[in-house]
């Protein structure tokens, strides 16, 4: 098969002839930043001097973080270092005592969680937080919630355009199901699924929100090697195909070193390192705090 290497888009389309194309069209349609060679220089998400404590326990202290467009940033750190808290602050679930979060140069610190999600900061959770009573496909369509364009009265009366809109949303969601290779369980209630599939369904729900930034909280925790490879492949595919920046919390250093463009290290609520995998590997502070002394 002859592939024109110079035409990146075309190459991608051939590679991903399955799944996600509808979703990508949705995302491309109102992309704010242009897709050009310089995208890596644009900051899309910025966390500035975040401090948060829970009744005397300092969860985060003056943490700064920048996420540039199109980059895959991994956050590592020992348990209790404040990684999940940082994601919770970004998605508006916790209010920081000090500091601000900027998304596309807009201050979103005081926004409510659902507005932040509507803007395109989507995430998965460390402890799976799916809607257990719904099937996989319904979970994903429920994730489309902010993007469905009719109000509840139209839904109740089920006018033809509501029906068409439902079918459109279903098409996009089925696309995601295809991409995640979950066709065989699409009508199964998620409460009865195995752990790995539930993690995948959660990733699907986050994708359904048309992410501009994807926050993944330990997407590979508790998986075996095969499942880890699957998830890593999905993450890389999403990252390349949708060309969206991804923030990922992960403990598996092998995966992190392999797929991350940049790594930030947290320890006891402080950021102790930030850089490419090579730099992190050499950073003495990180080595002593996390990777262990040689």
């Amino acid at each position: 098969m002859a592939v024109d290497i110079r035409n990146v888009t075309k190459k991608r389309e051939q590679r991903y002839s399955y799944g996600l194309t509808l979703l990508r069209d949705c995302i491309e349609k109102d992309r704010v930043l242009p897709r050009d060679e310089d995208i890596f220089k644009k900051t899309i998400l910025k966390v500035e001097d975040i401090t948060i404590n829970f009744g005397g326990l300092n969860a985060l202290t003056d943490v700064n973080l920048e996420l540039r467009d199109g980059e895959l940033l991994a956050i590592i750190g020992p348990n209790g270092a404040g990684k999940t808290t940082l994601l919770n602050v970004i998605s508006g679930f916790y209010r920081p005592q000090q500091g601000d979060v900027y998304f596309q140069d807009k201050k979103i610190t005081h926004y409510s969680s659902h507005r932040i999600a509507e803007m395109g900061i989507c995430r998965t959770f460390q402890n799976i937080a799916l809607y257990t009573g719904l099937s996989v496909i319904d979970n994903i369509i429920a994730g489309r919630h902010p993007h469905i364009r009719y109000n509840f009265l139209i839904g109740m009366l089920y006018f033809p355009w509501a029906r068409r809109e439902e079918a459109r949303q279903r098409a996009i969601s089925e696309d995601i199901v295809d991409f995640l290779e979950m066709e065989h369980v699409r009508n199964t209630t998620v409460g009865t699924l195995a752990y790995g599939l539930r993690k995948r369904a959660e990733l699907g729900r986050a994708l359904a929100l048309e992410p501009r930034v994807l926050l993944l909280d330990e997407p590979m925790a508790g998986m075996n090697l095969d499942e880890k490879e699957d998830i890593a492949r999905f993450i890389i595919d999403i990252h390349e195909f949708l060309s969206i920046p991804i923030v990922m919390i992960e403990h598996d250093m092998g995966v992190v070193m392999d797929i991350a463009d940049r790594i930030a290290v947290l320890d006891f609520g402080l950021k102790i390192g930030d850089g490419t995998p090579e730099e992190i590997r050499k950073n003495p502070k990180v080595v002593s705090a996390y990777l262990g002394e040689e």
Binding site: F93, R123, A129, L130, Y131, G133, A142, I148, F152, G155
Partner: peptide
């Protein structure tokens, strides 16, 4: 339809629903 799924989302996991873009 849309609101019905939002109802179930709020029932099953209201915190996650809020973070996943549903105004609970």
């Amino acid at each position: 339809t849309r609101l019905g799924r939002a109802f179930v989302a709020v029932r099953d996991n209201d915190i996650a629903a809020e973070v996943m873009g549903i105004n609970i």
